[in-house]
Amino acid sequence: MSIASAAARTPRAPQVPLVSLDYLWFQVAGTVCNLRCTHCFISCAPDNHSFWFLDLPTVLDYLERSRAWGVKEYYFTGGEPFMNKELLPMLEATLAVGPASVLTNATLLPERTVRRLAEIEAGSRYSLELRVSLDGPSPETNDPIRGEGTFERAMEGVGRLVEHGFLPIITAAQVWCPHEDEAVLDRFYASCRKVRYERPRIKILPSIHLGREVLRSRGYDDSEIVTAEMMEGHDLTTLLCSSGRVVTNRGVYVCPILIDDEGANLGDSLEAADRPFEIDRSACYTCWLHGAICTNTGHLGGEA
């Protein structure tokens, strides 16, 4: 790996085409979040307004246009999606055309919201997945990263979702040592059972060394880059940029990880964003290593 940085700077980094637009993401809350997690790779916070909320007409317009592309799954992220007051009608419209997933911190899920989510889900043939971010199986492990009291509040949200028939996917960044995975998973299962979540679904993700995570742990080093040699024989459909795009209030970006990188802004429409992307960013190395981790089926160590 010592020669990787030199190799990366020779001719050009690999180009990845949009093979099929399977995953359409909506940055519905921009970079606005009620929390300020210490590992957030796009540094979301209440006062980070670099990306703003998407409005309902914009989402409806993209949904309509997405049909011609044969999109397979829709994802809603932020920031905290439930800060967008139009999220529920957005989900209802989405579930008329395909499955939807919401990436949430579950701290803004009062009874009336969850009840309405359950009604929307029941009215569709498609799945509505709630992915709840937690970064440890206890307040002691989670709260130093996500904020004081967030573990209890998120688990209340999980309990409420379970009560209304959802099976939320607990999504945790691997902020512990990999050899502790099994023990951490066991503790997650135990915590879930305390809120009567008897068959929890848990997804572990790698850290993305961008944004605030650079301060919490580290940034990428020069060797962490994808070279042309590394793409030889590599299935490029495991990279999210070959199968997804993310709609933001500032245009369509290549993936949800890279929205702080203006070079990843591919234009103002899905048509404009249908072009190859040069995967010369360090975060592309994480995607290369672990596959399209952002989708529901991608996990740490998994094949997407």
């Binding site: 044969g70 999109v71 799954e73 055309v97 499955p99 043939r125 799945s127």
Partner: peptide, 21 residues
């Protein structure tokens, strides 16, 4: 049709996706 190990579940396979295939 495009991938031997792709899962086509009822709840995650939109009409528009089938039409594309």
């Amino acid at each position: 049709p495009r991938r031997m190990n792709e899962f086509l579940w009822e709840s995650t396979t939109p009409d528009a996706f089938i039409e594309k295939l």
